[in-house]
Simulated assay, not measured.
Amino acid sequence: MIEIERKFLVTSPQFKKEAFQESRIVQGYLNSHPERTVRIRIKGNKAFITIKGIGNETGLTRLEWEKEISVAEAEKLLKLCETGIIDKVRYDIKVGNHIVEVDVFSGENDGLIMAEIELESEGEVFKKPSWLGEEVTNDERYYNAYLSRNPFKNWS
């Protein structure tokens, strides 16, 4: 139930040529408080409810609990979510021993492309592809819950 994740901006569309899978994701937040977010997500033909806790001092590690629910349930729950639905396409890319997930946002967050990599430990070494740019793990503006309330298009 622990998630260790690093986030990076993406500097080139090269990742699309390396992707082995892509799927559309629509998600909303029943609660977007930074100490405890409750997310509803439809990814392809599956749906999930996820609860995430506050990150540790480094911002890399936090509690995450997720359960699959039916798409019909998720569609109903999305109607109860706070304003600001996230819409994105996720590309999965195998890089070394890891899967890097690259999210290409649309709608209110159009123009934002971000990569995430989940690790086994905070100090784990991983291969960085050439299209990975600035690390934004500790920048809360790049959390999806923040983006749902403060869309990328409104950043100055």
Results as ranks from 00 to 15, higher is better:
Met1Val: 05
Met1Glu: 06
Met1Gln: 10
Glu3Val: 06
Glu3His: 03
Ile4His: 08
Glu5Gly: 08
Arg6Ile: 06
Phe8Glu: 12
Phe8Ala: 02
Leu9Val: 10
Pro13Ile: 06
Gln14Lys: 12
Gln14Cys: 07
Lys16Phe: 07
Glu18Met: 13
Gln21Asn: 12
Glu22Pro: 01
Glu22Arg: 13
Ser23Gly: 08
Arg24Met: 08
Ile25Pro: 00
Ile25Asn: 04
Val26Thr: 03
Gly28Glu: 02
Gly28His: 00
Asn31Thr: 12
Asn31Phe: 11
Ser32Tyr: 07
Ser32Leu: 07
His33Asn: 10
His33Arg: 15
Glu35Thr: 07
Glu35Lys: 15
Glu35Tyr: 09
Arg36Met: 10
Thr37Pro: 09
Arg41Tyr: 12
Arg41Gln: 05
Ile42Pro: 06
Ile42Arg: 01
Ile42Asp: 01
Ile42Val: 15
Lys43Ser: 15
Asn45Lys: 15
Lys46Pro: 01
Ala47Ser: 12
Ala47Gly: 14
Ala47Asp: 04
Ile49Leu: 14
Thr50Lys: 06
Ile51Pro: 03
Lys52Tyr: 14
Gly53Ser: 09
Gly55Asp: 14
Asn56His: 03
Thr58Asp: 10
Gly59Trp: 04
Gly59His: 02
Glu64Trp: 08
Glu66Phe: 03
Lys67Tyr: 13
Val71Gly: 12
Ala74Gln: 00
Lys76Met: 09
Leu77Arg: 05
Lys79Pro: 04
Leu80Gly: 01
Leu80Ile: 09
Cys81Arg: 01
Glu82Lys: 11
Thr83Arg: 14
Gly84Arg: 11
Val89Tyr: 01
Asp92Tyr: 14
Ile93Phe: 06
Lys94Ala: 13
Lys94Asp: 09
Gly96Arg: 02
Gly96Lys: 09
Asn97Val: 02
Glu101Arg: 14
Glu101Thr: 14
Val102Tyr: 10
Val102Asp: 00
Val104Leu: 00
Gly107Arg: 13
Met114Glu: 09
Ala115Phe: 05
Ile117Arg: 03
Gly123Glu: 13
Gly123Val: 04
Gly123Thr: 14
Glu124Tyr: 01
Glu124Ile: 05
Glu124His: 01
Val125His: 10
Val125Phe: 11
Lys127Gly: 03
Lys128Glu: 09
Pro129Lys: 10
Gly133Glu: 02
Glu134Met: 11
Val136His: 05
Val136Tyr: 05
Asp139Met: 10
Arg141Phe: 10
Tyr142Lys: 07
Tyr143Arg: 13
Ser148Val: 06
Ser148Cys: 08
Arg149Leu: 02
Asn150Ala: 11
Pro151Met: 10
Phe152His: 04
Lys153Val: 13
Asn154Glu: 13
